[in-house]
Simulated assay, not measured.
Amino acid sequence: MLAFNHSASDWPTFSFIGIPGLEAAHLWISIPFCLLYILALVGNALLLILVRAEQNLHEPQFYFLAMLALTDLGLSLSTMPSVLAIFWFDVHHIGLDACLTQMFFIHTLSSVESGVLVAMAFDRLVAICAPLNYTRILTHYTVACFSGAALIRGATLLAPLPFFLRTFPFCGANILSHSYCYYPDMLNLACGDVTFSSAYGLVFVLCTFAVDVVFILASYMKILGTIMKLGTQDRNWKSLHTCACHLCTVFVFYLPLISLAVLHRYTHNTSPILYSTMSNAYLLMTPLLNPLVYSLKSRQIQAALRKRFGVQRVVAGE
């Protein structure tokens, strides 16, 4: 079998560090992590069930919400095995193929989620700026095209990354700074000239997350411009409230993502504990908080919860 590590006869393995300095407490740390993962899985599964079961949620904005929940489920299931294996069973090693597979799904699903957030921004743009044409523009076909485009874009742009990493030997200790496999982290461990692979990773970020942020900002600038022209007493000010859920989701997704990217590219002496905290926040808090945001702020979701499960209204005055 061909070896990528010149000093070994087998495939390279990588080591997770968990939370440095707190190894003795990993079993106790696993309890809140496990609870958070369960809450994330249950919350997103509940959103999927509600959107499927409730007829009044069969609207484009809630179809996009279901796509978001499905993506969050995938992200949680992609990272949960390695994170809990570290804390529960003290398993810190992963093979190259498993690591590349996990990396591919994490980055692809993150790209898909970013694309879905753009689609949700477009949905709010049409609802507020062209309400009379909403049903004509946001059809089931349009929703399917947006969702399919987000998935195809993520999978296509991410497909070369595992092949890039396979071409490099890994000749060091191969200790990852996260509890899962992350492309910049793995690239830092590769031996050889990684200029092209690093540049491609930057192009991927610019073609996905950077472009998506620009579209989202442009959408909300147009929304605010329309609202300002309509006046404070216009009924469409109520529509602006529906943007609150989406804006919260955007901040929850992009702030940890940007923070983690900055840590990797521009800081080299950062505390390992900070790396570990930010990486877990990046992929755990988004699936955890998105269902919470929509259950607290969306009147339609609250009505569906009351109907199905007898859950009382959480936010008074909504």
Rank of each mutant, 00 (worst) to 15 (best):
P60C: 03
F62P: 10
K229Y: 03
V126W: 02
G18R: 13
S114M: 05
L257I: 04
T142P: 02
A45W: 01
W88I: 12
N174S: 09
G115A: 06
A281S: 12
F209L: 08
S271I: 02
R124S: 06
G231A: 04
A159E: 02
L68Y: 02
A261M: 06
G172W: 15
W237V: 05
N290W: 09
P169D: 04
D234V: 09
D10P: 01
C248H: 12
F196S: 07
N290D: 04
L35S: 10
T195P: 02
L274H: 03
W11A: 10
H140E: 03
T249L: 05
S177W: 10
L132N: 13
T242C: 00
V42L: 05
L125T: 14
A119L: 01
D72R: 15
N269E: 13
F64W: 11
R52F: 01
F170N: 03
V214S: 11
C248I: 00
P287H: 02
L100H: 04
L296G: 04
T13Q: 09
I273W: 14
P131T: 11
Y183P: 11
T270D: 10
Y254W: 08
I273H: 12
A304L: 05
T167L: 03
A144Q: 14
T108F: 09
T135P: 00
N236C: 08
A281C: 14
S197M: 06
Y180G: 03
T232K: 08
A281I: 13
L161H: 11
A85D: 15
V262L: 08
K229P: 11
S76G: 13
L274A: 14
Y294Q: 02
Q300P: 05
G154N: 04
F168P: 07
E23T: 06
L96I: 12
V83F: 13
F163Q: 13
T242N: 14
M1Y: 07
S239H: 09
V250Y: 04
Y134G: 10
N188L: 12
F209W: 13
F253Y: 10
A45Q: 11
T139S: 15
T242R: 00
R52G: 11
C99R: 07
A119Y: 09
R124K: 10
S82H: 09
C145I: 12
